[in-house]
Design a protein around this nucleic acid. Structure first.
Length: 689
DNA sequence: GCGCGGTCACGACG
DNA sequence: CCGTCGTGACCGCG
């Protein structure tokens, strides 16, 4: 945690009302209660939510109260805690694998995976991330697992209720599976030498799998709020929105439903995706002008002839929603600032259709237009993007700016310092340094030699020793996303002849995201990003001075409270960052425990980078990964941070600080050494460090 | 070395 | 079971 102001050590009654914070999200309190099921048959493999990190805390940059999603009018679809579970409005096809739709498999009968069941009881600590573990390497090459020749058998770990109606945890679980699958498919395809038969659309492949294997949620179609999807959530693929029930069609821009069971055959619109490609822009962030669908008859033979749009399907549904005054979910497609080729989908909450008309399109044909107005009172989402765009045009529009670049040009991208909370105008001074500093010699890994690749290392090159050290898989996708965690991630180093643009040098090339150090309400300074961050993206390393255990003990004994210690010797919650085994033949190549050759202790108190400002959370959105590359004929381990899931702009970045064992150095300071945790997560352990 | 338009192949739902 | 909906990766161009 940052400190500077030592605000992270909040006295017991510092006015922090934890219960209020815990009420932010409509977690279990609003969820239906199901008749208790007998002790559930357990899931194949590991319990899916044992230690999986929870969702990201929502961020409200403009000081709005964060209780929005619990407001009753906008949650009219949600049922009361004691309400009976209504029969599903329609049954769906039985899954191909038997047993997937058996009666509730949740262990406490509430229809939802409970973070506390099977987690607190069987909560596993990783062994101290030290060198002792030597597991047999799990290699993704084919043979393993439960597949039976013809295909993969997979029994969905989700009950029929969970497939029908989601919550935050389920949504995160589905998204985690989708993207881990997607990254792994990319990796497998990249490894193939022959470029024939490659899967170009790993998103469709992964999407097809999670949809057909029922690793999906909120399949029950509904108007309004989707439980577990929060305003401001971002998506990188249409299939992600399908899988969590935000927007069902894999291609079409308008999702609608006919017949709500009341004999009413009127279609109603459920959600729309504004691709941004049209002239759908509007001046204000709470207005959306949306074009109807159809009209460009795109039959394969005939060269695009254009026709009048018709008042049918989605167009009709929007018209009926206007008539009924129904809410429509709006997802805005925006261009990413980091990689301009990709599009990001921002869930911007509920809108109402205000008016509709027809216009003459370019080819002189009629197109429908709809004006939608955002339902007031919702936390900003798309508005945040618009604000950031202004900030990028000029710093003057950034309120509370203290410093434009606290790295003084050390990082390739400026890191600004912002305080919108109080009058603190400076950091406790430290020296900005982008990587590790060794002040004395350590027993390092023996020097290892780099690869012989001439230009850039190529996935699938079996001769590249750096790829071999990673178990044969190229650790990153072609656009620099980490595929899976590794016991020790090997990047190319200075003695590798490959060029600096080698794709195996992600974590050593410095900060690429537009980051900002900001003053939090109650936890000192924190770190967040103006850019959106996708799951597996590198954020920054933990820079600082490497110290040894004796020095750490010396600090502790001397009563010096160094809040800027990173210590691989702490206990860390194990968590899963991969897909369920069995979804594809290749097993997930997720790490078991980290395998670090020596205990690495970093102090960023006097020397450090942006990493020192990342606060602790028990439900973090960032994880750390040991990375090794050699330098000066020694191999050095670095600590690199990657995103667990997609992180919307301006969301505070957090990782799990772990906890010191009681018999470690500093135990004579007693339990006071532990810091009281203010992360506000439902899984909060109460302390850290 | 980038932005742009064209091309291609694909999934969910009605 | 077929039609409706664009998308996302890639490639060549200027």
């Amino acid at each position: 945690m940052e400190g500077g102001s030592s605000q992270n050590f909040v006295p017991p009654s510092a006015g922090f009302d934890k219960s209020r914070v815990l009420d932010v999200r409509p977690l279990r309190s609003l969820m239906p209660v199901f008749p208790a099921a007998s002790q559930a048959p357990s899931f194949p493999g590991m319990p899916p939510f044992g230690n999986t990190p929870n969702g990201f805390p929502p961020f409200y940059p403009f000081g709005l109260p964060s209780s929005y999603q619990a407001s009753p009018d906008l949650n009219s679809e949600m049922r009361t805690p004691t309400g009976p579970m209504p029969a599903p409005i329609r049954s769906y096809r039985a899954p191909t694998s038997s047993g997937a739709d058996d009666f509730p498999e949740d262990s406490n009968g509430d229809g939802y995976f409970d973070p506390h069941v099977g987690s607190s009881s069987s909560r596993k600590k990783t062994t101290k991330a030290s060198s002792s573990r030597k597991k047999t390497k799990k290699n993704g090459d084919g043979d393993s697992l439960t597949n039976n020749g013809s295909g993969v058998t997979f029994v969905s770990v989700m009950s029929s209720f969970q497939i029908e109606d989601g919550n935050r945890e389920l949504v995160n679980y589905v998204l985690m599976n989708f993207d881990a699958l997607r990254r792994r498919i990319c990796q497998i395809e990249d490894n193939k030498e022959s470029k024939t038969g490659v899967i170009k659309r790993a998103d469709l492949k992964a999407g097809g799998i999670v949809m057909s294997k029922k690793v999906r949620t909120n399949m029950r179609r509904r108007v309004g709020v989707i439980p577990g999807v929060e305003i401001g959530d971002i998506f990188f693929f249409r299939m992600e929105m399908c899988a969590v029930g935000l927007h069902a069609p894999s291609m079409a821009g308008i999702d609608y439903m006919t017949g709500n069971g009341d004999g009413d055959k009127d279609p109603v619109a459920l959600s729309i995706v504004s691709s941004g490609g049209y002239d759908d822009e509007a001046e204000a962030s709470d207005v959306l002008i949306y074009s109807g669908q159809g009209g460009n008859s795109n039959s394969k033979d005939k060269d695009r002839e254009v026709a009048d749009q018709k008042l049918e399907r989605g167009n009709l549904a929007l018209q009926r929603s206007l008539h009924h005054g129904n809410e429509v979910r709006v997802i805005r497609g925006v261009k990413d600032d980091v990689s301009s080729t990709i599009k990001i989908y921002v869930y911007d909450g509920l809108y109402k259709v205000h008016e509709s008309w027809t216009e003459r399109g370019k080819a002189g044909c009629n197109i429908f237009k709809y004006k939608l107005l955002r339902v007031p009172g919702q936390p900003p989402a798309f508005a945040v993007w618009q604000a950031i765009r202004k900030w990028k045009d000029g710093f003057s529009s950034r309120a509370g700016l203290v410093l434009q670049d606290l790295t003084s040009g050390t990082e390739p991208v400026p890191v600004s310092l912002v305080n919108e909370v109080d009058n603190e105008k400076a950091l406790v001074s430290f020296t900005y340094f982008p990587t590790l500093k060794y002040t004395k010699s350590f027993s390092l890994m023996p020097p290892s030699f780099g690869c012989n690749c001439r230009s850039a290392c190529q996935p699938g090159d079996t001769n590249c020793s750096c790829i071999q050290k990673n178990g044969g898989d190229f650790p990153y996708t072609s656009n620099g996303i980490l595929v899976s965690r590794k016991q020790l991630l090997h990047e190319c180093g200075p003695t590798c002849p490959c060029t600096p643009n080698c794709k195996n040098r992600v974590s050593q090339t410095g900060v690429k995201l537009r980051l900002e150090v900001f003053k939090t309400k109650d936890r000192g300074w924190g770190l967040r990003s103006w850019d959106s961050i996708r799951a597996g993206a590198f954020i920054c390393e933990y820079a600082g001075e490497v110290i040894d255990e004796a020095k750490l003990k010396q600090k502790d004994d001397g009563g010096e409270n160094d809040e800027y210690i990173f210590d691989t010797g702490r206990d860390y919650e194990s968590f899963k960052w991969s897909y369920e085994p069995g979804l594809i033949e290749e097993s997930p190549n997720d790490v078991g425990d980290y395998n670090i050759p020596y205990r690495l202790i970093i102090s960023a108190k006097n020397v450090g980078n942006v990493g020192r400002f990342i606060n602790h959370s028990c439900s973090p959105n960032v994880f750390w990964q040991p990375v090794v590359y050699e330098h000066n004929n020694q191999s050095f381990v670095h600590i690199a941070f990657y995103a667990i899931g997609h992180i919307p702009p301006m969301t505070e970045l957090t990782y799990d600080y772990g906890s010191s064992s009681s018999n470690e150095a500093g135990s004579n300071s007693g339990p006071n050494r532990k810091n009281k945790c203010l992360c506000g997560s439902s899984k909060c352990r109460g302390y850290f460090g």
